[in-house]
């Protein structure tokens, strides 16, 4: 309140100066900047500055406590992390998550989409059902599966018991746990990716297909020589989106279902960063891990934004 009061009284004293200022700032040429100001300030404060600051923090050592000083250590964090077992496991798992996602989340939806597209409007119920997991939070999905897979009394175990079989404790073994998370993340995204392909297919002119049919082409020929080539841009887009998804979004099932274990079996680079920065409070390690993750993500994201731009253009 004091500040406002002062401003008012000084405005009275320097009325001509203030009027000049108001004229200058109220001029039409400043108008666009007023509209942009909130966004620019927010992005500066919460995107660009933190981004640069992360790079700086990656060269320091600090435990997040205000009373301990931050120490500049240069590139030591990078050397120490990469020599670390956790990093090597996380990097290996990240690559497995990506590699496993390609057949499951990128290729598998293609035949599903082609089939749904061939049904026309008749496939609406299928589409709605497979879209459902997209709407659910990954927390909900992870908890449901955690409970279904519970080795004691979970539905999977009970179902197997009906046939006298015992259901393995899939989350208790590193490789099985990783593939379980991979399959659950497939469950979550496959419907969405299928819809992306259907959107890509919708732009294919059906006259071409008729023409090929008249020339005696079978299903396979149409698929191979017409649909697949026209679907290539969509496939590439889905691939990029899926890679980003596989790096970022599996954080939630990892955190809820295994916390990176057993024996680092399910952790990935992003989860490693989280643990360094916010579980053991090693800011330098966390930031250094983030910078390495950034290099990986930047390449992928750059391509994605390019494609997104083109993708939306096609729609119009």
């Amino acid at each position: 309140m004091t500040a406002v009061g002062t401003a008012t009284s000084s405005a009275g004293a320097h009325a001509p100066a203030l009027a000049r200022l108001r004229r200058a700032l109220g001029g039409r040429r400043f108008v666009p900047y007023y509209y942009l100001a909130p966004m620019v300030v927010l992005l500066g404060l919460f995107t660009y500055w933190p981004f640069v600051h992360t790079v700086y923090l990656s060269l320091t050592e600090w435990n997040l406590r205000p009373d301990t000083p931050l120490e500049f250590v240069g590139a030591a964090n990078f050397a120490e992390i990469t020599g670390n077992r956790l990093f090597q496991d996380a990097l290996r798992n990240t690559l497995i998550y990506i590699a496993g996602s390609i057949p499951l989340k990128v290729l598998l939806p293609i035949p599903i989409a082609v089939f749904l597209w061939s049904l026309g409007p008749g496939g609406q119920v299928y589409r709605s059902v497979i879209f459902l997991p997209t709407l659910l939070s990954f927390v909900v999905v992870s908890v449901v599966f955690l409970w279904l897979l519970n080795p004691i009394g979970g539905h999977a175990q009970q179902f197997f018991a009906l046939f006298g079989l015992s259901f393995p404790n899939v989350l208790g073994q590193p490789t099985a746990a990783l593939w379980t998370i991979l399959l659950i993340s497939t469950w979550k995204i496959i419907g969405f990716n299928t819809l992306l392909y259907i959107a890509g297919l919708a732009s294919i002119n059906r006259d071409y297909i008729e023409a090929m049919r008249i020339d005696g082409a079978g299903d396979w020929a149409v698929l191979r020589h017409l649909i697949w080539p026209l679907l290539t841009p969509t496939t590439f887009f889905v691939l990029i989106a899926t890679v980003i998804f596989s790096i970022q979004q599996v954080f939630t099932p990892i955190d809820i279902m295994t916390e990176g274990g057993p024996a680092n079996g399910t952790t990935n680079l992003f989860y490693m960063v989280y643990q360094y920065a916010f579980v053991v409070f090693n800011v330098g390690y966390g930031a250094a891990g983030t910078v390495m993750l950034f290099v990986l993500l930047l390449a992928v994201t750059l391509i994605k934004v390019r494609l997104l731009d083109r993708h939306v253009h096609y729609d119009q």
Partner: peptide, 23 residues
């Protein structure tokens, strides 16, 4: 400014979390 705004799309939240957390 336009490049600045759209460029921010390329910086995922996860890469800025530590400084924002400190802030």
């Amino acid at each position: 400014l336009f490049a600045l705004v759209l460029g921010a799309m390329m910086i995922p939240h996860q890469l800025t979390m530590i400084p924002i957390y400190i802030l």
